[in-house]
Design a protein around this nucleic acid. Structure first.
Lengths: 184, 184
DNA sequence: TGGTTACAGTACGATTCGTCTCGTTATTTT
DNA sequence: AAAATAACGAGACGAATCGTACTGTAACCA
């Protein structure tokens, strides 16, 4: 009965928001600017998103979907190192969007929840599986701690920016994490 | 020659901004609301801060000043555990302000730099000294990595909120970090 | 005592927000 | 094929907020 919503408008809106943000910063992302650039009525944007933050959140969550392939070698340390290397590599392009996503989430509880459920937990479980494939499932709490330490170090450097996310870091994290788990 | 700026106004402005934020959230913190509650002219606020974000940033940086005392015992692991326990304890009250400070910093490069210089690096060096007191200064790179892992885990849980910052975490972090450094 | 400048208060134009109303168009149902 | 329905692009609108400018008053310094 109704006319369905335009997928082209969906795409144009998110794309415009992202472009505006990367070109001119957060302040430039106004609802009118998004609609104008997308060639879309303002109401068409408001029909999909409640406010500006929701548009940006949607765009950033989409950006965040890129997943890293999980290596399945014989050594935990080298699997871990390769995983982190690929992860850091991917973050070279998406890192800025991601750190802003988590930053924005600090001011919006529902966004924070969405990021946690759709993203943080997702990635935690991937890394936990990688580790438990080598360790067995009996040391869950230790594995959780080491996952906090690894992703923690990643986010910490990403958000604070005091040091780069490079291969050197991947190597050191893998080595010291594995030692911490007492795996010879 | 000039009349000095009122310290009472300084204080009232930051206090009002903080109150508005904690009572009614970010959106309620407008320059006019700050000025009104502080019993101060709007210009008096603008004379001190360029915009709303600057007011909030100043209040949050002030919040962040609390420092944790450094334990100086005989065992690295127990010193580390105690340090983390106290740190997490302090974060029970200031954690929300801090995670929002780092969140806001993702959208303001100069604030991010200020947080990094005045805060992140400050605390990193304290923790590095604690560790190097037990290890000696010859393993700087390893120590840096473990500091990234420890503070990283802290910020990660603080920002993502997937798990609490409790004594259990302090204990596990200390244990696995020390193992990772190969300290018997 | 005189000069300087911050002070509280207010008015102002510019922007942006989110709602609403046009007339049009695409899609589904009858 | 025709009718029904809701999305569409466009833009007008009031409310709210921004940051600046201008009051007259009060506090501080030389």
């Amino acid at each position: 009965m109704p006319r369905p919503r335009s997928a082209a408008a969906d795409e144009a809106i998110l794309e415009s928001a992202k472009e505006l943000f990367t070109e001119s910063g957060l302040a430039a992302v106004t609802m009118e600017a998004i609609a104008r650039r997308a060639g879309v009525g303002k109401q068409t944007v408001y029909r999909r998103y409640a406010n500006r933050d929701a548009v940006l959140a949607a765009g950033w969550l989409r950006e965040a979907e890129t997943l890293v392939e999980v290596p399945r070698g014989r050594s935990l340390e080298s699997d871990l190192r390769r995983f982190l290397e690929r992860l850091f590599e991917a973050l070279q392009s998406t890192g800025d969007a991601l750190r802003r996503l988590l930053g924005q989430a600090q001011f919006d509880d529902s966004l924070r929840e969405a990021v946690r459920d759709a993203f943080i937990e997702q990635r935690r479980s991937v890394l936990m599986e990688l580790i438990e494939r080598h360790l067995g499932p009996d040391r869950r709490r230790e594995v959780e701690t080491v996952v906090d330490m690894l992703y923690g170090a990643m986010w910490y450097r990403l958000l604070a920016g005091h040091a780069p996310l490079d291969r050197e870091l991947a190597r050191r994290l893998a080595k010291q994490a594995v030692r911490g788990l007492r795996v010879p």
